[in-house]
Structure formats: structure tokens, C-alpha cells
């Protein structure tokens, strides 16, 4: 806020102090994960602070014949990206339709209400039903099936968020575009989309991450060919032991694209949000 500019130095230091403590608390488990990825299981379990780093965990995760990690990783990329794009398209269209196109109020009620209800359902209970449906029409163990499943899982959230952003688009702009003779596709492309970009970024990042992390549904619907990273990581929780160090190495690798995305999109979100604030 603008008030920060006039804040005295002491209070600024105090704020940074608080933030640094919070950041340390957040970061500590990450350092732990990263350190674990370079340890042997026994040195992790005995809690050695000084240890001889080993790359064996990464080698096993990437190259071992029992590991499909590289394939799992590319599957995750495909499924998370495709479902994110799809959910943004579907949600933005639906949000525009619901907010700006004079649906009777019961339609809006039931769409948003149903989103809420569906969002309450633990996905695990739907996974069984989805499996038998997909198996019948041959969509189990396919990208299409998993993308559709993740799109559906993230749709309520995206619909909520896009609904808020589209609603905040000034109606005068839409009316003005209509008077200029613009049809729905042009209004969407030239009025709505540019104005809801911050919303698209936020909803998109969350969808991507939720899809990237989702475990129960992929486990049910996929096999070796289409399994994603969380399933690969889950496999290190074995029958009798947890192979913590390999799990940590796989986790560190799995977080990289998401971290990268966050670092890039972070700027975009900030810019988007500040443009929104000026309006």
C-alpha cells in the first residue's frame, strides 16, 4: 500500500523480521526434502547433519529399470497443461455466459450451486464410477480420460474465480462493443479476455498445480503408460517401508516445473493484479 512509503525504518525492519521468520518456517521442510534427496536412507534415518552427498537417489529415480519416472513426468506435463487450458476455456465461456448473457436466475443458481456441491465430494468416491464409465467407452488409461477427469475436478474452482472476474468487467464496455457491432466471439476476445487476464493466470496456476498433484483419481484411472508423477512418488511408499530418499529425489524433480512456472507467472500475476487495481 502507499502507506508503506511513509513507514519509519524501524517498522519496516520489524515487518521484514516477521516475514523472514515466516519464510524460514515455510522453507525448512523444503530444505529437508532437498537434503534428503542427497542422502542415503540410513543417514537420513539416523539424522546425520553432516553427510556425504550422493546422487544415487536421482540416478535410481531417473535411470533404474524399476522406475518410469521420465515417462511419468512427461505424462504429468501433458495432462496438467491440457486440462488447465481446457478448464480455462470452459470456465471463461461459462462465466461469460452466466454473468453477461441474461440467463434466468435459476440457471446461474444451479450451475454455481452444483459447483459448490460437486466441489464437496471427496474425489475418491467418484473415482470408482469414473473408472467403470471410462472403461466402458475405452477412455481408461488414456490421456483424454485423465484430462477430462482433471478438467472436471478443477472446473468448480475455475468457474468460481472466473465468475468473479467476469462479473467485475464493466458492463458499459460490453455494451459499447455491442453498439460497435461486435459479436460474442469478438467481445470475448477483445473485451473479456484482456480484462480477466489476472483471473486466468490465478485460476490457471491453481488448476495446473492441482492437476499436477492429484493422486487418487490418476491412480484409479491410469496404468503404467499414463501414470503421473504423484503415482510414481506414491510407489516409494512400499508395502513395508517408505523409501524416503528416493521419494525425496522424485519430489524435488517433480517440483521443478511448478516452481519454474511460479517464478515466471509470478511477475505476470503481479502485473495483472496491479493493472486491475488501477481500473
Amino acid at each position: 500500500m502507499s502507506a508503506a512509503y511513509s513507514a519509519p525504518l524501524r517498522s519496516t525492519l520489524f515487518r521484514h523480521g516477521l516475514l523472514v521468520i515466516a519464510a524460514a518456517l515455510v522453507l525448512f521442510p523444503f530444505l529437508w526434502i532437498v537434503a534428503a534427496a542427497f542422502k542415503t536412507q540410513i543417514s537420513l534415518l539416523t539424522g546425520q547433519l553432516l553427510f556425504q552427498p550422493t546422487l544415487a537417489n536421482f540416478v535410481n529415480v531417473l535411470f533404474s529399470s524399476t522406475s518410469d519416472y521420465v515417462r511419468n513426468f512427461s505424462n504429468s506435463l501433458v495432462i496438467a497443461s491440457a486440462s488447465t487450458v481446457l478448464v480455462l476455456v470452459v470456465a471463461t465461456l461459462a462465466a461469460y455466459s452466466l454473468q453477461c448473457m441474461q440467463w434466468p436466475s435459476w440457471v446461474l443458481h444451479s450451475m454455481l450451486g452444483w459447483s459448490v456441491i460437486f466441489h464437496m465430494v471427496p474425489p475418491i468416491t467418484l473415482a470408482g464410477a469414473w473408472y467403470s464409465m471410462f472403461r466402458t467407452i475405452g477412455l481408461d488409461n488414456t490421456y483424454t480420460g485423465l484430462i477430462l477427469a482433471h478438467t472436471t475436478l478443477n472446473l468448480p474452482m475455475a468457474l468460481w474465480m472466473m465468475g468473479v472476474f467476469v462479473r467485475d468487467v464493466p458492463k458499459e464496455l460490453i455494451e459499447a462493443a455491442k453498439i460497435d457491432g461486435a459479436g460474442t466471439p469478438r467481445i470475448l476476445r477483445h473485451v473479456i479476455v484482456p480484462l480477466v487476464r489476472p483471473g486466468l493466470a490465478a485460476a490457471g496456476i491453481l488448476s495446473f498445480i492441482f492437476s499436477w498433484n492429484e493422486f487418487a483419481v490418476v491412480l484409479t484411472l491410469s496404468q503404467r503408460q499414463t501414470a503421473t508423477v504423484p503415482v510414481a512418488i506414491g510407489k516409494y511408499a512400499q508395502e513395508n517401508t517408505i523409501a524416503y530418499t528416493e521419494m525425496a529425489a522424485a519430489s524435488v524433480l517433480s517440483m521443478m516445473p511448478a516452481v519454474l512456472l511460479l517464478l515466471i507467472a509470478q511477475r505476470f500475476i503481479v502485473r495483472g493484479l496491479t493493472t486491475g487495481a488501477v481500473k
Binding site: 500500500m1 502507506a3 508503506a4 512509503y5 513507514a7 519496516t12 515487518r15 521484514h16 516475514l19 515466516a22 519464510a23 515455510v26 522453507l27 521442510p29 523444503f30 529437508w32 526434502i33 534428503a36 491453481l206 498445480i209 499436477w212 498433484n213 493422486f215 508423477v229 504423484p230 512418488i233 506414491g234 516409494y236 511408499a237 517408505i242 524416503y244 521419494m247 525425496a248 519430489s251 517433480s254 517440483m255 511448478a258 516452481v259 511460479l262 517464478l263 509470478q266 511477475r267 503481479v270
Partner: peptide, 27 residues
């Protein structure tokens, strides 16, 4: 409310939602 380092803190605070629940459980 701070001027410098916003980007850093923001990035740090967003990290935990990137981690799959299954890893969080294990760690």
C-alpha cells in the same frame, strides 16, 4: 506493505501448495 523483496516473499509463501499431498505426508 513492504517495498523491497515482495517478489521473494510471495514466491516463498506460494511454495507449499506446489507440493503433492503425498510428499507432504511422507516428509
Amino acid at each position: 506493505s513492504i517495498v523491497h523483496g515482495r517478489l521473494f516473499y510471495r514466491t516463498v509463501f506460494l511454495l507449499p501448495i506446489l507440493v503433492p499431498g503425498i510428499i507432504i505426508g511422507a516428509i
